[in-house]
């Protein structure tokens, strides 16, 4: 457990030391949102909630693929080998998953803030929307961390990560969009609690499977 915490701390420190990467991600997010805003050419509040929601999650998906994808791909081979000699593979995947979930959550919240400023915010049930955001960023980040580990073994990993991750993420994204749509409409919470539970279950499946499979990935 302490090792996991140390590894998470190390991730934070290395992120802080290369702040340009973090700034790059934020700028990527901001420019994507701005491009969407410009290309829709909308005034605040004009865009329909349905399109608002879909667009938001597409932006988050792409930002996630671009930022989390680097989790294994960016690491130099020698450094990975060094980690592996220090910690168990389960600890490495756990720390990476936790760290990138937190990072993804931060990115999504910043993105949401900026997106609401330029595109307006039609959300009626904000607490539920935030719960969806938290669940969604955990799920997306944990799936992408594992897939980045898989893709990093192949030569053209940056295109491969997109090919590998989109089909796997689509089912999750469908549930996410459904949940957040209900939150936007401000439906009675009991109505879509089971959908939230499904999202939670998908997250649990992804995390459990990557926890089980990562040791095999590590050995190669």
């Amino acid at each position: 457990m302490t090792q996991i915490l140390t590894l998470i701390g190390k991730e934070f420190r290395s992120e802080w030391r290369q702040r340009y990467a973090l700034n790059g991600m934020l700028l990527y997010l901001a420019s994507t949102i701005f491009v969407c805003y410009m290309s829709f050419n909308v005034k605040v509040g004009v865009i329909k909630p349905l399109a608002w929601n879909a667009l938001f999650w597409i932006i988050i998906l792409f930002a996630g693929v671009n930022s989390v994808a680097k989790s294994f791909i960016q690491e130099a081979n020698g450094r990975l080998l060094y980690y592996y000699s220090l910690a168990k593979p389960e600890q490495i995947i756990a720390s990476k998953t936790i760290y990138y979930s937190l990072l993804m959550m931060g990115l999504t919240l910043v993105g949401l803030l900026f997106y609401s400023v330029v595109m307006g915010n039609p959300v009626n049930d904000i607490p539920m929307f935030l719960v969806t955001v938290i669940l969604a960023s955990t799920g997306l980040a944990s799936a992408l961390t594992m897939l980045s580990g898989i893709a990093s073994k192949a030569p053209n990993s940056s295109t491969l990560i997109a090919v590998l991750s989109f089909p796997v993420l689509i089912p999750m994204l469908l549930v996410i969009i459904k949940c957040s749509r209900n939150a936007i409409d401000g439906l009675d919470r009991a109505v879509y609690l089971d959908q939230m539970a499904t999202l939670l279950c998908i997250n649990a499946i992804i995390i459990a499977v990557s926890y089980l499979l990562f040791p095999y990935l590590w050995r190669s």
């Binding site: 799936a143 594992m146 897939l147 898989i150 073994k153 192949a154 590998l164 089909p167 796997v168 689509i170 089912p171 999750m172 549930v175 499904t198 279950c201 998908i202 499946i205 992804i206 499977v209 990557s210 499979l213 095999y216 990935l217 050995r219 190669s220």
Partner: peptide, 17 residues
């Protein structure tokens, strides 16, 4: 090895789908 791992991972994502 890598494709076996992806196979299991993808199958797990396929079930809810």
């Amino acid at each position: 090895r890598i494709s076996s791992i992806y196979n299991v991972f993808a199958y797990a994502a396929l079930i809810p789908l």
